[in-house]
Design a protein around this nucleic acid. Structure first.
Lengths: 206, 206
DNA sequence: GAATCCCCTTACCGGTTGGTAGGGACGTTG
DNA sequence: CAACGTCCCTACCAACCGGTAAGGGGATTC
């Protein structure tokens, strides 16, 4: 039939998409499955039919995000040097598109919350990602001699610089106004690239 | 009486203290007033007696934190140059003591959540703080010519680098183990100082 | 055309939420 | 000793939470 192309995202996919947006906005405890379903014109039992529990739905959103993070690395051209690759990777994490902002916000929330419900072990989704960042940083000229602790601390600081922006966006818009926030938004990526370069070029502490 | 010195923090103060710890750990929606009260061996009605609503209690915690942030600036010696003052201020935000970690975590949560319940306007607590950081950055040699957007973007990036650590601490402990997390903790402050120096010395993007 | 499966519904469950009503123990003040 | 304010309690409320049970409509399969 004619639906072969349009394929109009399955209900299940739309549920995950909506859940991702709402979890990012209000957090796991701040959203009820009934609200997610209502946003799609359905009842919460439709959600439970597909995912069984709220936790499982949340886990699938997290899985999707972990997959995206892994995919980001491949987007960097293989010929470039380690410093440039790392720079590209970090900058690729941000951007204005809603799914990416949601990703940063959800990641921040997961990091904040997962100690509470650590049994779900959502944090392990991040482990390979962090490991690769550390490995890549070690390959940057001047950083090969740094300790693991130094490399990890630096990676954390860089991730913070990258993700804080997406998280604080709405607050800054409220404080400085829409147009000022937009101006900051426009130059954020290039300023971030500049900053990462400065940090990498300086090397670890002596 | 003999209680003049000990003064054993009033119930009200202990409530705010406990609320601060729990809100930082689990977020506004993740904690019930009954849980806060139970932690002190009281019932939730004791809390409601003192604060009326959960929101008001949360607001008082936020107020306390805003006061601390304002006080941090004064701790820097007045004789030093702008770059050093900014460095000192940012480094002063972190540290291992529980109240400071709570502060970073709570601030991050507030930034994440306040778009949802913006009417409470908790974000405005941050406005003077951010304004002062921007002003101070403009005073750093090489940065006087930067645009407002550049200054703000850089401040956001630096704040992210500072606060992400406190937020991600427990998750990293889970991933890398206690001793590795401790090692990272031990060098974090000096590595952060080094990083801030590198960013300030590089100046804004041309 | 009967059976089956998929998707989603209404109805309901026990438990928890923030908040209200009212009272009792205690110290202070007249 | 009576009145009062402070502080905290038990009892209760409607609303909402995540999840279970059971069934109906519609397409597919035999």
């Amino acid at each position: 039939m004619a639906t072969a192309f349009k394929t109009s995202a399955s209900t299940r996919d739309r549920m995950i998409e909506e859940a991702r947006a709402l979890f990012a906005e209000r957090g796991f405890y701040g959203v009820s499955i009934a609200q997610i379903a209502a946003e799609l014109g359905l009842t919460k039992q439709a959600l439970l039919h597909h995912f069984g529990t709220k936790e499982r739905l949340y886990g699938l959103v997290l899985e999707q995000i972990a997959g995206e993070l892994a995919g980001l690395k491949a987007s960097s051209e293989p010929g470039t040097d380690a410093a440039r690759q790392l720079q590209d990777w970090l900058v690729a994490m941000i951007s204005d598109t809603p799914p990416r902002i949601e990703r940063s916000r959800l990641l921040m929330r997961e990091i904040l919350d997962n100690q509470v419900r650590a049994e779900r072990a959502g944090s392990w989704y991040l482990k390979p990602f962090l490991g690769e960042l550390v490995t890549m940083l070690r390959g940057v000229p001047g950083w090969s001699g740094a300790s693991d602790a130094q490399l990890r601390a630096t990676v954390v600081q860089l991730l913070g610089a990258v993700n804080y922006h997406a998280v604080s966006g709405p607050t800054f818009r409220g404080i400085f106004g829409t147009e000022a926030a937009q101006a900051m938004n426009d130059i954020f990526a290039s300023q971030l690239r500049h900053m990462v370069h400065a940090v990498l070029a300086a090397g670890p502490e002596a």
